[in-house]
Each structure stands twice: as C-alpha cells, then as structure tokens.
Nucleic acid binder design. Structure first.
Lengths: 134, 134
DNA sequence: ATGAATGCAAAAACTTTGCATGACG
DNA sequence: CGTCATGCAAAGTTTTTGCATTCAT
C-alpha cells in the first residue's frame, strides 16, 4: 500500500488525483505504465482525472523520485514506481514482455569505465531487447 | 567518403537528397544528429530538401542498416552512421557531450544474462549519464 | 483566505502520410 | 517512359501550457 506521507515528504499537497495516480501505479497489474495507460485505468475505475494532470503529476513524481521514467524504443515514455532498488530491463521484441534484472558485474564495470574517462556516474539506462530462444 | 554504391547495395535509388543526407551524416561535426539537425544543416549548405524527406530517408537508411537510430532521453531520436562496429554511449548531463565506448566484459555479461532467462539478445541500448568529476 | 492544483482546450514538438509533380534508370 | 522519390501541406502522436475554477491547508 502506498502512503500519502510519501507525497507530503516530497513536498506535494495530498490531492485526490495524486493519490489515485500513485495507487494506480502501485496496484495495477502492469509494472510499467504510460501516461495514457494510467489515464485509461483511472477512467475505467470511474476516477475523473484529466490526461494533462496525469502527465503533470507523473512528471512531479519523477522529480520527487517516487517514480522512474523510461524511454524504451517506440515513441512514448513509461513509468514505474521507484520501489527503492535500481534495476535494468529486458524487453521482448515479440511480446513486449518486460523483465527486470540487476547484474552486479555490469554495475561495477560501468563505474569503472566512467572513472577511466574522468567522469562520475550520475545515472544509467540499460535495456536489452531480446527474443525467446527458438 | 561515403559511396553511392552503398545506396545501390541497399536497393535505394541514388537520388540527390539521399546522397546529400548521407554525406551530411558523414561529414558533419556531430556524430549524432536528429532529423531536424540534418535538415538545418542541409538548409545552411544551400541544399533544398524537405524535412519530410529527411525523415523518410533516415528511416529507409535505418531499415537498410546504413544508420542506427537512438532514443536517448528527451523526446527526439538521433541518428548516426553505422560505421560497422557497435558501441555504447556516455552522455555528460552538464555539457551534452557524447562519448562512445565498448566494453567486452559488459557485452559478454549481457549475453549470459539473457541466456539465463531463456532468451537470445537481439539488440541493446546502454547509456551512461555522467558528470565531470568535481 | 490564499496559494497551489486541476481540467479543459489550445498549442507545441516530433514524426508520418496523401497527393501531385518531378527525377532516376 | 514507367516507376519510384520528392516537396508541400495536412494530419497524427505524444506531451506541454494558459487560464479560469476548485481544492487543500
């Protein structure tokens, strides 16, 4: 269950749209939802929230670190709850299925590579596009 | 120098717009150009090519394997010449600078991870967001 | 009460498409 | 010459913004 205190902590007023959107992200079956997905889910649930608000709120949630925005291939962004831990993604090009994973070896190498170039790692984005072995 | 034979090989007629766009990608300072970038560069060079054509041609080039399309964070796609070898990217969040790199250890781990999940790797996308060490 | 949040509709940013004209082979 | 490519403008998508109204504190 998502807590309203998370909103307060983020300096966001606890409004109905924000609470509903947060719950939707938490309870909907899909781990990764586009703004449109969230909007449609809210409509079906009888909640009257504007699409513009969904975009605004998701952007605020991202800024607050409550959700993470992903730009997988294919035009539209998807969001997922920032359940604490970081992870990367594997996307099946045939089914669209998304699998989350984390690999310590890769994480470690990334930091090393960046350091070798005189930088520090701020963030990273790794998506593996895969297909079921035939 | 980019060869027209590459176009023929790809089954594309050798037309002025296609040649110019290919040259632009090859000779422009930027390694990664958006459709808009290519269009503006062509305008400045006095070439009269429509933006729609730039999009169409870049899409054809991608299908032909002549260029690679990247969906970095931030709305618009960028293209780069497929100079043979694959590589990943490091983007400086302060300056926008893009550094290309390839790490065998990471490449290897990716294949292993995917295999462990019963998939085969079709493609992947790794972007490290970095900052100059302060 | 008062400043922030919302909803709507309009606009913006990026990309694709329809169609008549023009160019390649 | 026939067909494919182009240019323009119009339409599509996804996301953002202006503004009057409503809501949280």
């Amino acid at each position: 269950m998502v807590e309203n205190s998370e909103l307060r902590k983020a300096g966001l007023k606890v409004t109905l749209p924000r609470v509903k959107i947060l719950q939707m992200l938490d309870s909907a079956g899909l781990r990764h939802m586009s703004a449109e997905d969230v909007y449609k889910a809210l409509m079906e649930a009888g909640e009257d929230v504007g699409l513009a608000t969904v975009y605004r709120v998701l952007t605020q949630f991202e800024a607050a670190g409550l959700v993470v925005r992903h730009n997988f291939d294919g035009g539209h962004a998807v969001f997922e709850l920032a359940d604490g831990g970081h992870h990367d993604h594997m996307v099946c090009v045939d089914t669209g299925e998304v699998i989350e994973f984390i690999d310590p070896a890769i994480e470690k190498r990334q930091k090393e590579i960046v350091a070798e170039h005189g930088f520090e790692l701020v963030d990273h984005n790794l998506v593996l596009y895969v297909r079921k072995k035939s």
